[in-house]
Design a binder for these strands. Sequence first.
DNA 1: CATCGATGTTGAG
DNA 2: TCAACCTCGATGG
Length: 332
Amino acid sequence: MPEGHSVHRIARQFDRNYVGRQVAASSPQGRFAEGAALIDGRVATSVRAQGKQMFLEFDDDIWLRIHLGIYGAWDFSGEILVDPTIASANGRMGQTNQRGTVLDDAILDDAGENSLASIGAPRRTRVHVRMSEQTKGLADEGGEWPPPVVGQVRLRLMTDITAADLRGPTACVLQTPEEMLATVAKLGPDPLVGDPVANEERFVRAVRKKQTVIALLLMDQAVVSGIGNVYRAEMLYRQRLNPHTPGRDVPEDVVRALWRDWVRLLAIGVETGQMMTMDDLSPEQYRAAMASRDDRHWVYHRAGLPCRLCGTEIALEELGARKLYWCPRCQA
DNA sequence: CATCGATGTTGAG
DNA sequence: TCAACCTCGATGG
């Protein structure tokens, strides 16, 4: 499941490959047939992302709102122009198969003549991008156009050279400009949207006026946009903050530190496509982290394992129907 | 092969 | 508070 960084990456791919182009829309699965018919043949005019929501605008004044939810995903295939701002730091998109990471770990066709090693001026490359093991075979077929529909595809958006298949979204709806703005208005600040100073102040105010525990506030999309269960656990650990601290009791400087850390982690996530939440890794640690997501985090998914710093068993508890991982000693 | 669980949200009760 | 949504990788037999 994508957290905010993935949604921004997807938005950039739409910006690069769809905005300014006429789009053929269809709903192979049928559950979005009416909506698809409404936008079919229109030109995509802009795209925006805030938190876990993405909005794709079509002429004239029709906004497609997408929320991937817990298992939604986009599959891109065909000929795509890779946004240079999201090429990975090591010169190649990741190769792991994490589900739901969408363009995180997006993959170049293994047989591909192209590599993203040359991060620079945008250039058109024939690549296949995928997100799920299921569609790997499809991408590797190559050549077939349009790509055969695999499984339940709610919405397919095609330019003459690129296809994007949407499956399993929580939300896939058309909105008027007013409705889109109303949706955005309910969302907390996103570091990549709007004024940085205003965003931080908004976050600080929202946290410090509530008695809700900070672990819940960080997951509240009205308080801050884009943080999910992984970033939540990791951010709390990085501040050595007890997850049960009421928002109003978190010192202001710590609240600000949380925000600035989110700014930083989101930027890293958007750029690399990975939720890398550990700093200053040794070469050995870095290799491990690249190879396995279990080695990228301080506490997430590490219940019962020794804390990387103090050796205490990482605790797991249910909070708001989600799993919370934390170190009882470091975050006392 | 079957079952589980997940980087999420909504809405019924 | 909890089921539903809807998909698929991981896990276990």
